[in-house]
Design a protein around this nucleic acid. Sequence first.
DNA 1: CTGTTAGCGCGTTCAC
DNA 2: GTGAACGCGCTAACAG
Lengths: 341, 341
Amino acid sequence: MPKVTIIDIARRAGVGVGTASRALNNSPDVRPATRERVMAAAVELNYHPSAVARRLQGRRSSVIAFVHEVGDEPAGDMHFKDFISVLARSCARQDLDLLIHPIRDGDEEFRQSFVRLLRGGRADGLILADTREDDLRIAFLSSEDLPFVAFGRTRSAIDYPYVDLDSQAGSLEAVTHLIEQGRRRIGFIGLPLHYNFAQHRFAGYQQALESYGLKVDPQLVSTNLHTETETRAAVQAMLNRSNRPDAIAAATDLLAIYALRAIEDAGLIPGRDVAVVGFDDLPLAAHTRPSLTTVRQPFDLICDLLISTLIGVIEDDSNIPRQALVRPTLVVRESSAPSLP
Amino acid sequence: MPKVTIIDIARRAGVGVGTASRALNNSPDVRPATRERVMAAAVELNYHPSAVARRLQGRRSSVIAFVHEVGDEPAGDMHFKDFISVLARSCARQDLDLLIHPIRDGDEEFRQSFVRLLRGGRADGLILADTREDDLRIAFLSSEDLPFVAFGRTRSAIDYPYVDLDSQAGSLEAVTHLIEQGRRRIGFIGLPLHYNFAQHRFAGYQQALESYGLKVDPQLVSTNLHTETETRAAVQAMLNRSNRPDAIAAATDLLAIYALRAIEDAGLIPGRDVAVVGFDDLPLAAHTRPSLTTVRQPFDLICDLLISTLIGVIEDDSNIPRQALVRPTLVVRESSAPSLP
DNA sequence: CTGTTAGCGCGTTCAC
DNA sequence: GTGAACGCGCTAACAG
């Protein structure tokens, strides 16, 4: 079966290709009757316009690439599938295709592939995930003036487009919630601080305590956690102190879940004796026992912002803000019950 | 900065566009000296060929789409990121771009988008994940004669291209390993059997027992597990029987990890009193305590096969087998220690 | 309102 | 060996 082009449907409808094109793209200047005939011809011949030809001709952008790093975090990434799916849906709404482009952790060969992608017209813009403190990719893209938006801030000096979760605000809200539940000795378990969001989440914790006149007890803070084993050990250590915490704020749901278990192992009742809050609202979080109070990232909003921002950058539209911060929402569940009198 | 095309570099090198093209694509009929000049001009002008124009002109395929379903499994999908990353690398090796195309669980509107993708030239072929027993997408693609390859068999009557893991063989090997370690009463915990791989994994378990003349005790089999809670309850029930199992085979690492915990909770030592094997070799599996014996999916091989098969289908190359079954490998760790005498 | 024509950037004939 | 010309499928610009 030969490929059916716009010429075929034009002939079939007895019109010129120009008219056919206009009819198909519902341009206003077409007589309804003519449009009908063209549309009919299109379905009859099972016509589907070539996206490639469209792009060559030089119209609107049509594909963007999602760039993420792939390292070897032992915990996998339970977010990824959901996030990418939401992002893809956001793209679809804008009639954009989503390309996936993983780069190896620390590998610096991204330059070639970025250029190939963008200059070669395979994609019109990049969404950068897993941003680091000093991100070479951002520096490179900025210097080459290639269109991108980062998901996550860095502490780079350059002013680049990004969308980020306001982790600090989320953490602040979660810990404030603990305090309002009557908790006073609140510990913190976190990821290595070279992740920006890890810093922000820790900062929110500090801010919450300070605003209530509570002191941050260094003994109750552990911020360099990687594995489950490390985390449980850290929590255990806190619990063994004579003046043990009555609540623990975790930088991540995963850490929070480990904490839940460690608390149980120590013979205490998580949620009652020691309250716990997480961060991320993994699908898992609603199913733990006790279910986990946590901070939810509004993926839909983030993805929409990511795309609209990127489009703004691509089209050089100065009306669209180049930066956006998204407030997360607190989801209260069982693990943060009020403190017993 | 204006877009630099092949014409620019031709002029710059003082040759015709034809020659420039040949030089760039290292066609044999070009004098070395000429080629040098062209190449030099290309780097000088920072030239990057337009992938779009290339495709329009009608050369080789350049992008394939990965289609997956997104439902609401509570456990997230810890595989996804790794898998997609490996797949993307396989694509990159073939100079292919990878498009991501999620469809909602059970949503039947995929037809339009598939056609738009394939007929519209946005992608040249599809990789179908999350295949179901009776998969409408496969039926549709086959009937429309659109190029695709499925990751996973179904029990469809149609003969379609697929790559799949030989789950049964993997499960057989794992359970055989348990038996050889001296285990005799082996339980099985599995996912709902409407997943094809769930059936295969269960079948492998049965096959192993039978080949050693052991009976499958229905009391020791639970195959409709979803959540951690359900799984722990199921394992607990097995453990409470007077004649408790001395090993448990799980259809999934996640289930296996839940089992590990349930065994601990029952006051038994996992790996010693009750051996456990999983399936998948999640990054997590090496870090549990005891570390988890499991069955590893060779992602690299699977991805390469997926792509080569798909290319075969696209190019209608009858030399490339349309079906492939990949044997997984057993990874022995601590959770399957020998049975005590 | 509609038909015709000129590119978009490239690979590929076909003559030289 | 190399240059010129054509066509991939489509949209935009210009005539009618």
